[in-house]
C-alpha cells in the first residue's frame, strides 16, 4: 500500500468540544462504510478548521468563510464523492454568513457541520454571531442559524447536536451524512461545541439544551409548528437540540447536471469524444 500523509494529532486545548465532533464524524463515516478515498473534508479557518488534518481522507483547507461555495463546487464537479464541510461559527455565520442562506436555498447534497462555540477561538475570544449579548464587549443579539434555515424554503435538513451528548451527536452526524449520501440535499448540522479557553459554556449548555427528540409533540416535518416551538424555546432561553427540521426538495446536483454524462471530473475530455457537438457549436457561429 502506498503511504500518504499521516493524520495529524489534534491541536485543540484539552476539553475542547471539537474532539467530540471529530469523533462523531469518524464513527459515523465508519458506520456508514464511507470510503476515505472517496471523501473530501473541506474545513474553514479557525480552531475548528483543523479537523481535516486529523482524519484519513482527502482534505482541503479553505479560505476563511468559504467552506460552502467550495463544497458546492466540489460536489457538482464530482457527484461520486462524499463531500463534508466543517468550520466554526465565525467562519460560517460571520465572514461566510452570506453563503449559508444561498447554500440552504440551493440544496446541494453535502454535509455541513458547524462547531458553534459562541466565540472566535483561534483569534482569542472575540464575539461571534452566536455570542449572547453581554459576552465580553458584545452588545448585539445572537443569531440562530437554524431559525434562519427554517425561513428558507429550500432547506431540507436542519439539526443541532451537543458535544455533551455524544450518543445523540453520533446519531445526528450519521443522519446528516445519510441525508447527503442519499442525494436528499444539504444537511446542516450545528454542534454546540464549547471552547473551554474563551467561552466555557459546558455548565450553562448542560441545563439550557432542550432535546426535541424527547418531546412527543415535536414534529420535525411540520415546519410551521416546529418554527413556532423553536421560537418559544428560544424566548425561554433554551437551546433546542435534535433533528429540528426535515423537508423534501430536489437536490441541486439533480437539477443542475446533465445526467447523460458521467460526473464532470470523470469525463474523458479528449476533444475527439465530442467532436460532433463542438462542430455544431462552431457552425452556430457560421450562420
Amino acid at each position: 500500500m502506498t503511504k500518504t500523509f499521516t493524520p495529524a494529532r489534534p491541536i485543540w486545548c484539552a476539553g475542547c468540544g471539537d474532539f467530540g465532533v471529530q469523533q462523531a464524524l469518524e464513527n459515523a463515516m465508519k458506520n456508514l462504510g464511507i470510503e476515505p478515498h472517496e471523501t473530501v473534508v473541506v474545513a474553514g479557518i479557525g480552531c475548528s478548521g483543523s479537523l481535516q488534518n486529523n482524519v484519513r481522507c482527502y482534505g482541503y483547507h479553505a479560505l476563511h468563510g468559504r467552506v460552502l461555495p467550495t463544497v458546492t463546487g466540489a460536489k457538482l464537479a464530482n457527484t461520486d464523492l462524499t463531500v463534508i464541510g466543517v468550520g466554526g461559527d465565525g467562519d460560517g455565520y460571520a465572514i461566510g454568513g452570506g453563503h449559508l442562506m444561498h447554500t440552504l436555498k440551493r440544496n446541494p447534497s453535502v454535509t455541513y457541520i458547524v462547531m458553534n462555540n459562541g466565540t472566535y477561538g483561534l483569534t482569542k475570544g472575540q464575539a461571534s454571531p452566536t455570542s449572547p449579548n453581554g459576552y465580553g464587549e458584545n452588545i448585539e443579539e445572537d443569531l440562530d442559524p437554524i431559525l434562519l434555515g427554517m425561513s428558507i424554503p429550500g432547506s431540507t435538513f436542519l439539526a443541532r447536536g451537543y458535544t455533551g451528548q455524544p450518543a445523540q451527536l453520533l446519531e445526528l452526524t450519521t443522519a446528516a451524512l445519510e441525508h447527503a449520501e442519499n442525494g436528499r440535499g444539504f444537511a446542516f448540522l450545528e454542534v454546540l461545541s464549547p471552547c473551554v479557553t474563551y467561552n466555557d459554556t459546558y455548565r450553562e449548555w448542560r441545563t439550557d439544551v432542550y432535546d426535541v427528540e424527547q418531546d412527543p409533540d415535536y414534529d420535525a416535518s411540520d415546519k410551521v409548528a416546529a418554527f413556532t416551538r423553536l421560537m418559544a424555546l428560544r424566548d425561554q432561553g433554551r437551546l433546542p437540540i435534535g433533528l429540528l427540521y426535515r423537508g423534501e426538495r430536489p437536490a441541486l446536483e439533480e437539477a443542475a447536471l446533465n445526467h447523460d454524462f458521467p460526473p464532470l471530473a470523470l469525463q474523458d475530455i479528449d476533444p475527439s469524444k465530442l467532436m460532433d457537438k463542438y462542430q455544431q457549436a462552431l457552425e452556430s457561429f457560421m450562420r
Binding site: V40, V42, Y60, A62, L63, R66, L68, P69, T70, V71, T72, G73, A74, K75, L76, A77, N78, L81, G98, H99, H102, L264, A265
Partner: peptide, 12 residues
C-alpha cells in the same frame, strides 16, 4: 462564492 465554487471544482 464564484471563485471558491471554482476552487472546489478544480480540486476534483
Amino acid at each position: 462564492s464564484a471563485i471558491n465554487m471554482a476552487i472546489g471544482s478544480a480540486l476534483t
